[in-house]
Design a protein around this nucleic acid. Structure first.
Lengths: 184, 184
DNA sequence: CTCGATTGTTGTACCGCGTCCAACAATACG
DNA sequence: CGTATTGTTGGACGCGGTACAACAATCGAG
């Protein structure tokens, strides 16, 4: 199982150095070279641990989304998948980014990345709805609301200082808001 | 009003050359240098006409979204703004991209850009809802659904070959789907 | 201990997007 | 005529990301 040269660093080491720098100089103001220099590794090595600079913040959530995509493709029901998504979520570095977003000067950058993830999740949900017989139009519209509810809940959760409530109940509230527009 | 050197090219000239190349080699397979070469201008000039390569496709929609943002900030009601957004929309190059998305090999690229725009619109809508007294959580969730409905309608409209129906009625249908999930 | 096989690390070269800037060209106006 | 204004161009640069070949450190087999 363990042959070959042992790793000289770790994702956490790099992520830690990166988050420090993000708080000091902002996200855009920090280059990959800066990160690797502080972490004490070469720039090449960085890409052995993260596929991109933004992946430092989003790796955890991206994994959870991938799992949700797979579950949806496998035919699981939408509410169940979304519930599990937020339950299994470990926001790690991302929570730091959300909370200090303004300080890190990445509110805009963060909003954009959030939108991309919302879109990814929405697409998977929409495919599920469509497979269940919904119109493509209706499926995409509803999916956008449901995916948006997930991220609204995650953001609200991260933004509220500890002790934080259950993420699951925030999600329920958000999902009710999507439906309940006509019935306030 | 008109002093100084006259323009030697136009946005349309560049956009036309670009769309040709997108169809030939795909979006990612086309570099800015390729575009300017075919259009007969320098690479520097490109950025006097478009802020980025993707702006070629999205300029029209981005303008419409900016107008919607302003209207929302000015206090206009959400349904009115969304209705006007799709009414005033001239999809121009974007429609080409949507229709030939697969051929251009930009389905993924297109989905991502779409998500970013959906997020931008959703944010503006959410701010409006929040200003109207909604919880931040509820405002973001509902806004995501409404913004998603807009884009679902635009995509459905572009994807359906001519003669296309009214975009406005597609939007209404999509918005009903957001609400009506519980009442099919 | 030595020899591969395997895995991690590093430097370097490269590409494309986007920014910046200084030089130059073409028009209108006084 | 100059002169101000606006457009065009080329070049240099920084950054993110990819590709790859060279090198280092470990393990197991003989």
């Amino acid at each position: 199982m363990s042959t070959g040269r042992p790793r000289a660093t770790s994702r956490d080491t790099i992520a830690e150095a990166a988050c420090e720098l993000f708080l000091e100089r902002g996200f855009e103001g920090t280059t990959v070279a800066d990160i690797t220099q502080r972490a004490g590794v070469s720039r090449s090595s960085f890409f052995n641990y993260f596929t991109s600079k933004s992946a430092i913040l989003w790796a955890g959530l991206d994994e959870a989304i991938s799992a949700a995509e797979a579950a949806l493709r496998a035919g699981e029901r939408v509410p169940d998948v979304l519930g599990r998504l937020v339950d299994e979520l470990v926001p790690d570095s991302l929570a730091v980014g959300i909370v200090h977003g303004a300080a890190m000067g990445i509110s805009a950058e963060l909003a954009e990345e959030r939108a991309v993830r919302t879109g990814r999740l929405a697409r998977a949900v929409a495919d599920r709805h469509a497979a269940d017989g919904m119109t493509r139009l209706a499926a995409e519209a509803r999916a956008a609301g449901e995916a948006g509810a997930v991220f609204a809940a995650v953001w609200a959760w991260a933004s509220s200082g500890p002790p934080r409530g259950r993420l699951g109940s925030l999600l329920d509230e958000a999902l009710r808001a999507v439906d309940g527009g006509a019935v306030p």
